[in-house]
Design a protein around this nucleic acid. Structure first.
Lengths: 345, 345
DNA sequence: CTGAAAGCGCTAACAG
DNA sequence: CTGTTAGCGCTTTCAG
């Protein structure tokens, strides 16, 4: 849809702006309606007529205007995706997964980062006016904004964010994975834990912490209070310095994401502490670095998150109705050496 | 532009689709032209009238249609960016830098990945029809397509790709950096080198290889023939296996990017070879992992590349004329332990 | 099977 | 200062 085969595609390479459907119609000696039909559904037009139109199109290198078409059709053939500040290397995967799936469905993708911008709300609303569907990732805009768009604007799919009325939601498993991670660490025999990250700052972290705390409590171990810190290496490093000053050192440090864990690792190196001998360490996300430094972590299906959002949006755009859906994609515990020695089995 | 202050922004949260400028005009008892003026340039309208219009806008929660506006204005208020397959973690930075700068200039960004898609040409041409300017990164589409778009479509800025007539070009320094890297390795005393990567597959790699080969030749060292391989860890690993089978082992392995180097590192570990004792190793890009494994590499200003492209595009869109420009952004040699011992100074 | 004509929603002369 | 009136480029009834 929107394209007319390789031949025309190549000819269009030398096209000139401003060739309208009127020019084509005149050249072919037909009405614009016929040109439109010939292009949109060749079956509606007599063989001979179609040939004349195609010839005219080729000679004039006509390319229909998206704007004209969209205005007439009332749709943009595009989706939007709003992503938060925490666009670490892995979050870009969500974008790519989304774009790929959207492209397969014939839609373009408009991106909007909210990296410390003045008024995300205004920008998101503007974006909502340019698309047929919107993916909102994380805490980029307030719930009421999301609800309003979902109610009277394009359909919305939420990603890595708690559900909001009227919008579908896709997330990665956090709580269960946190519990599994905690149980794994308990299996190592650790009983004194630390948690680095801010549950209040992100629903993802809140879920992870909840799962961890729950599993620890179930095992009769008192969950550590979170040591709040931002989402990057520096923050992890600083938090670790604070942590290591305490009277009793934890046996295992669970971090909200890999970058924080890497910061901790740095700090430990500075203090001459060995991982995992002196301290067990875990992250979250399975960024590439985790593999190379042997960091135990949780792998998330980033690409799938983006792709699922694109597909769900497509369904909603195509009139699918029904109550808001929710999907939790499975994550995977990736055990490496940072959490302690394992029997090779 | 396109937004009318926080008050209206918040009211719009409960807006309903389909409120047109006609409804507002009727409600305010004025013509649509007056509504348009009041919104676009309040100075053109009498104080009292403006108040009435604003009231109507607020009550109806009117939000002008981008499509209608764009069609009338003849512009999209959006840019596009086409990026290649090699979207490693760092390439996403280009996207983000571009989006950020574009947003500052009041334009949205449409993305298009060409990850092994059937017909990039068609998709790129389609994209060209949706934007006021286009960033084309790497070898995503043929030169003639770029030239054609630049000639009769929106302005084009090329990123990390050799210049094409009619389009501005922004790249990161490759050749000089390659030469600097080679000289650094020569300074370590190495004389037998290997190069992993495919100069024919990417202009970036070609530049890097050229710089390296030149510097080696200048030093009377015969440049190694490239051992061609793809851009990822697996390819690097496999290439290294091949390399290590050779009669004489190189003293230093220069890789086209960090991921390839990491693959080499893995292979060396498998073979019980220590880096840098048994083999010196370098990458390119300075991905996060490079820092944590101590890989000597070249850092590129990814964000700047994207931002510069956005700004240049904006200038061209705003009627700036003149011959195609070219800019080469500086890169930086980042020396770490993988290339051999250095005196602490 | 094809043409005429009415929009889609907004901007921008052109008159008052 | 404000209203009228053309479009912007295309899709889509409605007739024929």
């Amino acid at each position: 849809m929107g394209w007319y085969g390789p031949l025309v595609a190549m000819k269009a390479l030398t096209s000139t702006r401003g060739v309208t459907i009127y020019a084509v119609a005149e050249r072919a000696g037909v009405s614009i309606a016929t040109v439109s039909r010939a292009l949109r559904d060749p079956g509606l037009v007599a063989e001979a007529t179609r040939a004349r139109v195609e010839a005219a199109v080729a000679e004039l290198n006509f390319m229909p205007s998206r704007l004209g078409r969209s205005l007439a059709e009332g749709r943009h053939a595009a989706n939007g995706i709003v992503f938060p500040d925490l666009v670490g290397p892995n979050y870009a995967e969500v974008l790519l997964g989304n774009e790929e799936a959207a492209a397969d469905l014939g839609r373009s993708v408009l991106i909007l980062g909210t990296r410390g911008r003045a008024d995300p709300t205004a920008q998101v609303l503007d974006l909502a006016g340019r698309v047929d569907g919107l993916v909102v990732m994380g805490q980029t805009v307030a719930d009421d904004v999301v609800a309003a768009i979902a109610a009277s604007g394009p359909p919305v799919v939420l990603l890595a964010r708690p559900p909001v009325a009227g919008a579908d939601t896709v997330t990665a498993e956090n709580e269960a994975a946190g519990a599994e991670l905690a149980r794994h660490l308990l299996g190592h025999g650790y009983r004194r834990f630390a948690f680095l990250g801010d549950p209040a700052g992100s629903p993802d972290v809140a879920g992870r912490y909840a799962g961890i705390a729950g599993a620890l409590a179930d095992a009769g171990v008192r969950p550590p209070a979170p040591l709040r810190c931002a989402f990057d290496v520096t923050a992890g490093h600083e938090a670790a310095v604070t942590l290591l000053k305490r009277r009793t050192r934890p046996q295992a440090v669970i971090c909200a994401n890999d970058e924080v864990a890497l910061g901790v690792q740095e700090a430990c190196a500075d203090h001459g502490l060995d991982i995992p001998t002196d301290l067990a360490l875990t992250g979250w996300d399975d960024v590439m670095t985790a593999r190379f430094v042997g960091l135990t972590t949780i792998r998330q299906p980033m690409r799938d998150l983006g792709a699922t959002a694109a597909r769900w949006l497509h369904e909603r755009i195509n009139q699918m109705t029904g109550p808001a859906r929710t999907k939790v994609l499975p994550t995977q515990l990736v055990v490496r050496r940072s959490c302690g020695p394992h029997d090779p089995d």
